Amino acid sequence: MKDTGSVAQAAPAKQVRARARNPRGEGGRLREEIIDAAAELLDETGDQHAVTLRSVARRVGIATPSIYPHFPDQPAIMLAVVRREFAALERTLSAAVERAGDSPRRRLLAVCETYLDFAGRHPQRYRTMFGGLWTPAPGDGSLTETDLVMLGADSMLVLVDVLTECVAAGAITSTDVSADATALWVGLHGLAHQRVVSPSFPWPEDIPERVIIPLAHLTTI
């Protein structure tokens, strides 16, 4: 994935904002501002090609070379955005589990509903996380296989954990939690993706339940 150094035509023009120099020892703040700028560009354009070193630097209000101490290239910035969004997803799912109380069934449904809500509230970032806008591969700039293989693992673990609790409580009939967690995620992802790309489709109100209940092997009790 090569950074052309130019802003994609889809990206709206935005005036460079003046930026004060960070005090010594606060370089981490600039790193976060770079990630923020990349995420904003994705939200506004839905185009990974709008995220270039030059467009990000312009959004932050710095010279392009100021990015290099924090990120070696554009793929590294994209990876940082995706990692941060997956961390946000994991926190959001975990919080939903806690709010749902002690019922394993309610906890499972809360995770699934929260996942779909997250995708709907952050459509461009969600698509970037799961390959809809960004399809990275080892060898793209500074990216390695290790960088990519564990993306989303913590979020999947939340789903596996609530399914395991449901098995113990007799709320689902799964005999292979890991495989069923994968199948349920595929179903949720498919629904989430299609809702993003087909917003005018007449989705049935109970479509989440029609996906979740059979794929999770939920009992009727």
Rank of each mutant, 00 (worst) to 15 (best):
P123N: 05
A119I: 04
A119D: 04
T146F: 12
A168R: 15
V111M: 05
V196E: 07
V162E: 08
M156G: 10
V186H: 14
S198C: 10
L159H: 00
P199Y: 06
S178N: 04
G139A: 13
S174E: 09
A171D: 15
G139M: 14
S142R: 03
A171M: 14
H193N: 09
E113I: 01
A181M: 01
V111R: 07
A183I: 00
F118P: 08
T182A: 09
G141Y: 05
P136W: 12
L151G: 10
E145S: 14
S178D: 01
T164P: 08
A179C: 05
A169P: 13
T128H: 06
L109A: 01
M156D: 08
Q124V: 01
T135I: 09
T135W: 11
M156W: 06
V186A: 13
L157A: 10
G152L: 06
D154P: 06
M150I: 11
E145V: 10
T135C: 08
L151I: 11
V197Q: 08
A153M: 06
V186P: 02
M156I: 07
D176S: 14
A183L: 02
S198K: 15
P138T: 12
V111Y: 09
A181L: 02
M129G: 00
A192G: 09
T182Y: 03
L157D: 02
G132K: 08
T144P: 10
A119Q: 05
G131R: 12
L148F: 11
G190L: 04
T144K: 09
V197I: 15
C112I: 07
A179D: 10
V160H: 11
G170F: 12
G139S: 14
L188V: 03
L116G: 01
R195C: 05
